[in-house]
């Protein structure tokens, strides 16, 4: 990635779209600390986070969902939520108390699972629920740590259109909670509907930026970057 500069304000939804290999996930890995930036700075709420570890960034309020499911397949849906609801509490280091005895944590997991309509399936193994449900569990997972900034990596990828709509609703709900969202998408219609502002990347560069409405009207840019002609 080169010469990438942008900022996300509170309550804003920002989408980055581009084809395979445009560097979208690389950008995410930089923002989230999986990769080290060779140059430039990254700020989170005016704090320089360029050189701090991924886990510290999480404690500062950055949450991320992955492109591939990163659930624990042989654990139940509820148990999948457990590490996420414990992480910001000192209880994450408790060694001699059963994890099922933390009622307030379980209530929190329950609320999150209920918003994703997954509470009924809490005793199913994560590998047995449908792919769409796994994606929703993945988002619930990231939400559990009370993020102040959500990085969503292709939330609509590989989903049936009806489930994409549901994921869109979930994202809208996040907006109501005024959590800023940075979205990476290969699916422009979905991204344009979900986001307030759009960046298009290509080969590691940001080549275009505008609001979704402007982009819809800009026939030239659409043809050039999204391979769409006409309106």
């Amino acid at each position: 990635m080169q010469d990438v500069s942008f900022s996300v304000e509170i309550g804003e939804k920002l989408a980055i779209i581009g084809p395979n290999g445009a560097g979208k996930t690389t950008l995410f890995n930089l923002l989230n600390g999986q990769f080290k930036a060779s140059d430039g700075r990254i700020y989170l709420f005016n704090q320089d986070i360029t050189n701090i570890s991924t886990q510290r960034r999480a404690h500062l309020g950055q949450a991320r969902s992955f492109q591939m499911n990163t659930l624990f397949p042989t654990l139940t849906v509820l148990d999948n939520m457990q590490p996420a609801v414990h992480v910001l509490k000192p209880s994450r280091f408790h060694m001699f108390r059963s994890i099922t005895s933390y009622d307030d944590h379980i209530t929190k997991a329950q609320k999150l699972l209920e918003t994703m309509a997954l509470w009924e399936k809490r005793e199913d193994l994560a590998q047995d629920i449908s792919y769409g449900e796994q994606r929703k569990l993945e988002i619930a997972f990231s939400l559990a740590s009370e993020p102040k900034l959500m990085l969503l990596d292709e939330p609509s990828e590989g989903l049936a259109p009806i489930i994409v709509k549901e994921v869109g609703k979930v994202i809208n709900r996040l907006k109501k909670r005024r959590i800023p969202i940075l979205l990476v998408e290969q699916n422009p219609p979905f991204a344009l509907k979900a986001a307030d502002y759009v960046y298009i990347t290509s080969k590691g560069l940001i080549v275009y930026e505008s609001t979704p409405d402007e982009l819809k009207d800009d026939v030239e840019a659409k043809g050039k970057y999204l391979g769409v002609t006409g309106r």
């Binding site: 989230n32 999986q34 570890s53 991924t54 886990q55 510290r56 999480a58 404690h59 949450a63 991320r64 992955f66 990163t70 659930l71 624990f72 397949p73 654990l75 148990d79 457990q82 590490p83 996420a84 414990h86 992480v87 910001l88 994450r92 994890i99 997972f141 990231s142 559990a144 740590s145």
Partner: peptide
Amino acid sequence: YALQGVRDQEPRMRCLG
């Protein structure tokens, strides 16, 4: 539980914090 999370999905656990 965190140990088992580290076993199965270390990058994910790091992301959670």
